[in-house]
Design a protein around this nucleic acid. Structure first.
Lengths: 246, 246
DNA sequence: GGTTCCACTTGATCTCAGTCAAGGTTTCGT
DNA sequence: ACGAAACCTTGACTGAGATCAAGTGGAACC
């Protein structure tokens, strides 16, 4: 039994809550994964993969944040997804990347070579199922975000983003106290603007406004405290506190 | 061999290009599908399923158009997907619908009872694969649409929508001549506005403008001719004519 | 310790799309 | 044929967010 080599205690890099398909948590056929799994690290700002490039791996984020970004010829850009630790990247059965993947912060990814991974998927229906589930989740998140982009005001957009990051952060370090939520913004104002379909100036102004009105507290430019999560979510226009994730 | 009972000639309702998982095209285990497949029809404006409802079927659109819509408490709505003939609806492994499904026109759907369908999926990896592929396509389309919602001008949004409908229409009746493209708009101005994150007045104005400038021709309010597809796509800000579909 | 660079903030102004309002057309029921 | 209800168009005005521009604060690098 090879399992011992790959169990959680042997893999300090991977967080326990590895939602993605991963040797440590999901696959008994560990022999099949030996040699096709590897780690890659990126510095903040580096491009993981360019839109249109050959994509010969799939994988999941171990630490750091990556973004999926689309760009028009004239330079307008829209972030179409945010990859937080445990999120999966890649398209089984797709040759090229449909958008740029950028390391927003320093980034560690746990990758699998694509071909063998696909083979494994063919012989392990359980993985295909898992992947389908995850893709459906992503689709829901994308569609939820369409409502944000299409119908919310700048202020609501900012509040929506903050509450997503807060919730996501809390679930990774699930010390869910009833008290204030504290986290560091992993995105620059510009990255937030690209995610929200705004300009960085508008982002800055709205954050200042939320701060002045006490909805959030700021220490420096990135360290955020949310004294009352309920209030933030009201600002976001969300009714359901039902957990949609990025 | 039961196949004869279900082959294309026996199913006048279903279009040949049934992209979805369907007894006629994809499954040899036809016995398994007998009794779990049925047709439902809806009139324009009817609700197929409400957000939050129990969803006990999956299926695909045979004819007509359905929309996936999200609504905020204050009534703002955003369409998050358009279901054209051959598109799939439903969430294997999900209990409740995440958004409203509305019949935008008169609608015929080819449905499968969910439980047996899931069972079948478990025993037929081929279907799970197909479904994963389709979900990934939908995800790409949703993300492409995020760029439209977040970064395009009203004019570009209209042009984007028209070119999607035109392309989609052409692929269903693939008589792809190089000449002008002709089709009927399946959406009201209001529905277009909900899809594009605009108001119906703005939609109307932009369509009038495109008409005045000869980018499109209109006969009545719905019958559209596109004399030069290339020009429309320039207006949409799309560079790649690469086929992204709704 | 100063210079440089980068991320951010704030102000002034402009513009695109939203809002409010009125009127036109088509369709459908009686 | 008439009236009502959808659906669509157009105009005048308003306002949220974009654009342009100047300035602040902190970290890194000689």
């Amino acid at each position: 039994m090879l399992k011992a080599q790959f169990d959680h205690t042997n893999c300090s890099d991977c967080p326990i809550r590895h939602r993605a398909v991963c040797a440590h948590c999901d696959v008994d056929e560990l022999e099949a994964l030996e040699g096709i799994k590897y780690y890659r690290t990126f510095e903040a700002g580096q491009t993981v993969i360019w839109s249109g490039d050959q994509m010969n791996f799939v994988g999941s984020v171990v630490s750091g944040i990556a973004s999926l970004t689309q760009t028009m010829e004239d330079g307008r850009t829209q972030m179409v997804g945010l990859l937080l630790p445990s999120d999966f990247v890649g398209r089984p059965g797709r040759e090229t990347a449909p958008y740029d993947v950028l390391a927003t912060t320093d980034l560690v990814m746990c990758c699998f070579r694509k071909k063998p991974f696909e083979t494994l998927m063919g012989s392990t229906p359980h993985i295909a199922h898992r992947l389908l589930q995850m893709t459906l989740d992503e689709l829901d998140a994308a569609r939820e975000w369409m409502l944000v982009l299409g119908r919310k005001t700048a202020r609501e957009k900012i509040a929506s983003l903050l509450s997503i990051i807060a919730r996501r952060d809390a679930s990774i370090a699930p010390k869910q106290k009833p008290g204030p939520i504290v986290f560091d913004l992993p995105l620059t104002r510009e990255a937030m603007a690209d995610y929200l379909g705004l300009t960085l100036e508008t982002v800055s102004r709205q954050i200042s406004a939320l701060k002045k009105e006490g909805v959030i507290e700021l220490e420096g430019k990135r360290h955020v405290t949310i004294p009352d999560m309920r209030r933030l979510m009201d600002e976001a226009g969300d009714d359901s506190d039902g957990g949609f994730l990025v």
